[in-house]
Design a protein around this nucleic acid. Sequence first.
RNA 1: GGAGAGGUGGGUGAGUGGCUGAAACCAGCAGUUUGCUAAACUGCCGUAGGGGUAACUCUACCGCAAGUUCGAAUCUUGUCCUCUCCGCCA
Length: 423
Amino acid sequence: MLTLQLINQDPEAVIARLAVKHFDGREPIMRVVELDKERRAAQKQRDDNAAQLNKMAASIGALMKQGQRDEAEQIKAEVAALKSTNKEIDDRLTAAEQEITDILLSVPNVPYAGVPEGRTAEDNVVERTGGPMPDLPEDALPHWDLARKYNLIDFDLGVKITGAGFPVYIGKGARLQRALIQFFLDEAGKSGYTEVQPPYVVNEASGLGTGQLPDKEGQMYHCQVDNFYLIPTAEVPVTNLYRDVIIPAGELPKKNCAYSACFRREAGSYGKDVRGLNRLHQFDKVEIVRIERPEDSYAALEEMKDHVQGLLEKLELPWHILRLCGGDMSFTSAITFDFEVWSAAQKRWLEVSSVSNFETYQANRLKCRYRGEDKKTHLCHTLNGSALALPRIVAALLENNQTPQGIRIPKALQRYTGFDIID
RNA sequence: GGAGAGGUGGGUGAGUGGCUGAAACCAGCAGUUUGCUAAACUGCCGUAGGGGUAACUCUACCGCAAGUUCGAAUCUUGUCCUCUCCGCCA
């Protein structure tokens, strides 16, 4: 959530920036400013009273020791009166703090200066394009037909075992999954990311830390008996590694990568968007996460984009980068770049990666700080990106590389798959 | 699933109602001294929120929440978590 510091510093600027996300922040922000004033005043009163009470309590102790009972009893009466008024003030203070938190939880992150105006995906800006565009015949098959033809993925079996959106990968299909995971992890390692294997199930505090809770409660599978959540992305457990910590400045940046299965309920999705591998309830992804000093975070973001771009180039897929407009960005993000690959048989772009800088928005909830040269604690910037999500990469690989002989495996992947064609 | 033990500052660990925001030790930081890596000595060394231009000062926090009390790390209740043993099992 946004820091009070940022809001108090210049509420009008915050409101103006929130407008880029098409969020009307005037009412909540102004209310927070007002509540914060109340909060300070109340705290001053309460603390002064508490100091007074502490003194009185101490003097009672002293009087008792000297056997001056009557005097002590007299002060006790005063204490009782002051205590009850202080209770009222304390309740006001707690109420103000609670309301501030509630409001801040409902206010999205402010977009970074470079975020373009816009309301929907239509308004996103294509930043860069690359990769070879495939030239397929008219009768090219979509990946779900290819998956069936070569017996790579059985969607119906998944329906039997679990339900729609839980495919069963078979034979070379399964091997391709494993190869991609290994490839992505190796590449992340080469770029300096330390691999971690996190839990796939997290507690409520972790969900709150990265912002999936409370806003996106319905998007996660919830094990109610234990109050655990299946992770929608490795971002959740990996970023939460740094919850409630103060990192020595010299240890930054922290760079981690992790493979995980990802679980998403995707309530409300339907139609061609969910056909085949386009949108699943369980999928595989390698995620990269960075914890940075604020002044370094935008350079880090560029590095992450370069890393993802490098992956797509090695996979010989046609790609482009979108700079998301304010309206299409996620709640918690300050700036997001989406990578999409061209799925030649479906004739559409598929999002395969999302790289974001959250600035201090997540860190504020996580209490992820570092100790600066000034010996004080400061909030870190957190960033993450997919590198990469598998299903749509597989969809594009299958569709774009189909030949009459079979499906060609890009060179960089062959040493991982152990085969160069699926036939 | 059954039984028990325990949660104190970066770590170890003392502390059963006021003088304890918290001993001591270790680690860390700053300095003094000594002609080697090193040692010794001195000081500092939690987080957060207030007030103050500042020096400084107030408040809260000993898993979390509520309660008893003039006063709680210390007593009561609830709750979460961890560990050990038994059972079950990869």
